[in-house]
Simulated scan of single mutants.
Amino acid sequence: MKKRSLWLLPLAGALALTGCSDSGNEAPAASDEAQSSEQAPAAEPLSSEKVKEVVEKLVADESGAQIIDGAAIAESLPQAKELVEGMNIEPAKCAELVAQQSSWDIEGINMAVATVAGAEVGESTSYSVASYEDDAKLSEIKKTVEAKDLQGCDSFSMEMQGMKLNASAEMLDATSDAKVTTATKTSITMEGTEVPMGSYTVQGLVGANAVSISFSGAVEDEQAKIDELVKELNVAVAELEKTQ
């Protein structure tokens, strides 16, 4: 069974998209709260135009922000898939997860993404909003996010431009105004030295919408960065709640 997730391995964070993964294990049973929420009337999803408007508001004060809508995202997916499939990711199960993450079936999902370059080389912050018209996909992403499970791929290796890199991912504690919140740290090392390609990401579910805010680059104070991202996530939550 395909599982919709807000998976945050470095590659997905770099592409700033929500995606899908495939695992041999079923997701843990949803909590009573989650089950009751699934039985409640589903919130109305946002149109492609509304999703893009929310993202534009999130980066309104940022000069040079690059915003792409769902049509542009769909057009870029084949190239993203080819890129990931050429990375020789090990162990094999993680290669499968990451490769599938970059071959998103986004039919029934209205999306928009914005990226803002940071002050340092290679530093950036991305903002992603996805609104689910497909109830089945929305249900699956809720189950997977609530599980907060890295599915055994908290450590793996990959090759990029002839270089072998080691990646690790871990779940962090975070709370926000969203109904469900996740926070993830990803790190990349080359020959034992950490390189500024990792990321910190916070994500939240709001009705039929999923929001992700991710920072890539060097971080001196981990908790301060998480707090900063949560603050921005809360702004996104407030914008989405205005549309409900």
Rank of each mutant, 00 (worst) to 15 (best):
G152C: 09
A14L: 08
V235A: 13
A80L: 11
P10C: 13
E44C: 04
M87G: 10
E56C: 03
L17F: 05
V84P: 08
P91Q: 14
E62I: 01
S187P: 02
E241I: 01
K164D: 14
S155C: 04
A208H: 02
A95P: 02
Q100H: 12
A99E: 14
S23Y: 05
T181W: 09
S102M: 12
T115E: 15
Q66Y: 05
S63R: 05
A174V: 09
S155T: 11
K52R: 13
E228Y: 04
T18R: 01
E191N: 14
G108M: 03
K57F: 03
I67T: 09
S31N: 10
Q101E: 12
L233M: 11
S124P: 05
L150K: 01
Q35A: 14
A208Y: 00
A34G: 11
A117Y: 01
L172S: 12
Q223A: 15
N234P: 08
L83P: 02
V202C: 10
S187A: 15
E90C: 08
Y132S: 11
T175F: 01
Y200R: 13
F215Q: 11
E90T: 15
S157Y: 00
T201R: 05
A74L: 03
E146M: 03
C153K: 03
Q161H: 07
K142P: 01
S214A: 14
G24D: 14
